[in-house]
Simulated scan of single mutants.
Amino acid sequence: MNTIKRYGFVAGSALLLAALPLTSQAAKQAASAAAAAPAAVDAGAVAALERMGAALRALKQFTLVSDATTEVVLDSGQKIELDSRVNYQVQPPRHLFVDMDSARTHRQLFYDGKTMTLYSPRLKYYASVDDVDATLSELAGKLWTEYGIDLPLADLFQWGSATPPHNVLTSAVHVGTASVDGAAVDQYAFRQPDVDWQLWIGQDDHLPRRIVIISQDDAALPAYTARLKWDVRAPINQASFTFTPPQGAARIGILVVDAVAMQPGEK
């Protein structure tokens, strides 16, 4: 699983606005940070990722809302922006519900530790896989490699796992301090092959509050931005993780990865 590489993040089209213009003060902070850190990978920035991973691993449960914008490049070279919202309910290490909604597609993913179900509320089709028996990190990889489904914000599960992928980084720098939705954060910029990405990490809880991902393997440099809102205290109903077919819903097979193809205009 390539960490951060798959910047779309909405199942089937994947579960990830260019970065906001830097103020003059932020630009000075970025330049100062770059000058003060001649090494390509700053140890402090990597340590911030490790603290974020530890904070994610410490969560007993959480709900998460991600409001995201994905840039899509047309054949003409023009960029358009597609908005989406993802709602997560999670109880690590093996319970997950994801609602992925946009103007074009609506998908829900249920996982109760054994059975994974992907459901389309608009089409009323669902596909289930039994005996998955995987942690959330393992599930994210399995969905991508076996079924071509990119779990929204899947990389959070990788950084929150016991073996975060530090070795992929070619550059890491602390840009400076900022505020996201009223919370004090530290902004970091990272690079790995073909991808630039930024994280705004809460100073108090070390949870990611904003993420920007730019694909470098496309000359148009399409970007993905997501703003993350966490709730680690709200109770979660256990029934949320188990799919119960609504009246009129029909079960279909799930395609293996080499057969997956999204049809134009699919809802």
Rank of each mutant, 00 (worst) to 15 (best):
T3S: 14
I4L: 12
R6P: 00
A14S: 11
L15A: 12
L16I: 07
L17D: 10
A33S: 15
A36L: 08
A39Y: 00
V41C: 05
D42Y: 05
G44H: 08
A48V: 08
L59D: 05
K60T: 09
K60Q: 14
T63H: 03
S66F: 02
T70I: 03
E71D: 14
E71Y: 06
V86G: 03
P92G: 10
P92I: 09
L96V: 06
L96C: 03
V98Y: 01
D101E: 12
R104E: 09
T105Y: 03
Q108W: 01
D112R: 07
D112Q: 06
L118V: 15
K142N: 09
L151I: 04
L151H: 06
P152L: 03
A154I: 01
A162M: 09
T163S: 13
P165F: 07
H166L: 10
V173F: 01
H174K: 14
S179Q: 14
Q187C: 04
Q192S: 15
P193L: 04
D194V: 09
D194G: 02
Q198I: 01
W200I: 07
I201K: 05
G202P: 10
G202H: 10
Q203H: 04
P208N: 10
R209W: 10
I213F: 00
L221G: 00
L228A: 09
K229I: 10
D231C: 08
R233M: 03
Q238N: 14
F241H: 08
F243V: 05
T244S: 13
T244P: 02
P245L: 04
R251T: 07
I254R: 06
V257N: 13
V260P: 00
A261I: 01
A261H: 08
Q263Y: 01
